[in-house]
Amino acid sequence: MLIVLVLLSALLFVIITISTNQRSAGRNVATGVLLLVLICSIAGLFFNDNQQWGMKTVTTTTEKSLTSASNISGAKLLLYQPLGNGNEKIFIYKTDSQQKKVAHTTADIKTKTSVTKNNTKNAKLVTKTTRYVYRNGFYRFLFAGVGNNHTFKSRQQQFKVGSDWVVLSTTQAKQLQKQAKSSAAKMKAELTAAVKAKMTAAIKQNPQMTTEQQQALQKQYTTAAQQQAQQQVLAQLQKESLK
């Protein structure tokens, strides 16, 4: 409506001013009213655009489940790419273990991202998006054609992950992946030797063990050794995340 008033009042003001040479009370009143309508309409559009006059804010919240962004010895990882001096970060994440391409947060001044660690078992990304909408139908009619309904204001993204999650930069993750590959054979040999030593001691203590019992015990020792190795890797990851 205000756009129409601006165009119409400006057009009529020009027409009356040009077509009427003699000044009269009627002409002066008409041009004065048209000029006032023009100024008020432009002011209304200005304050709507700069001060969000006639608007209110509405916030919507969405939640997405999270899975590890990378696979390093079974650890749960949330990765980030530092920007500039490192204070700004783009977080890299996955919402599905079958997801081929990772997703990432946006980097702009209207978006704030944070990470919270707690005892939750189900990691998730909570996004709160705030937009400007018209207060009521009157303002919707008044600013028809402006096209600023549902204008984006701000976004808050919060990663809520368990205490067993590790937050690493992409550079740290790449370095650890290289280390894991280079030490994989050594770790496997150490696990095999440790399990073998325990089995030898167990058989020596109980020579009457059946084949089935030996197999079950070996499986138990192997699982325990793997868990211990994963804990060591996790401890290393936690150490890296604090740097």
Score class of each variant (00 low, 15 high):
109 I>L: 10
92 I>W: 15
83 L>W: 00
94 K>D: 15
97 S>P: 10
102 V>M: 09
103 A>E: 10
84 G>H: 15
90 I>N: 02
111 T>I: 13
80 Y>C: 04
98 Q>I: 09
106 T>Q: 10
89 K>H: 00
83 L>T: 09
91 F>P: 00
79 L>K: 11
102 V>N: 09
94 K>T: 14
84 G>M: 12
95 T>M: 15
95 T>I: 14
81 Q>P: 03
102 V>L: 07
100 K>N: 11
92 I>E: 12
86 G>Q: 02
93 Y>H: 09
91 F>S: 00
99 Q>E: 15
95 T>C: 09
105 T>W: 11
86 G>N: 00
79 L>R: 05
102 V>K: 04
82 P>H: 10
93 Y>W: 06
87 N>S: 06
110 K>N: 13
87 N>G: 09
106 T>V: 14
86 G>K: 00
89 K>A: 02
89 K>F: 00
101 K>I: 01
88 E>I: 06
100 K>A: 03
106 T>M: 04
94 K>E: 10
90 I>P: 07
107 A>V: 05
86 G>S: 01
104 H>I: 07
109 I>H: 13
90 I>L: 06
101 K>C: 03
111 T>C: 13
95 T>P: 04
95 T>Q: 06
106 T>D: 12
104 H>N: 10
87 N>L: 14
86 G>M: 02
106 T>N: 10
81 Q>Y: 02
89 K>Y: 03
87 N>T: 10
101 K>A: 05
98 Q>P: 12
81 Q>H: 04
108 D>Y: 07
95 T>G: 08
97 S>Q: 04
100 K>I: 09
102 V>W: 10
86 G>R: 01
99 Q>K: 04
100 K>D: 07
88 E>A: 01
91 F>C: 02
108 D>R: 07
91 F>Y: 08
93 Y>N: 09
96 D>Q: 04
93 Y>M: 06
109 I>N: 09
97 S>I: 15
108 D>L: 08
86 G>P: 06
106 T>W: 14
82 P>W: 03
99 Q>M: 11
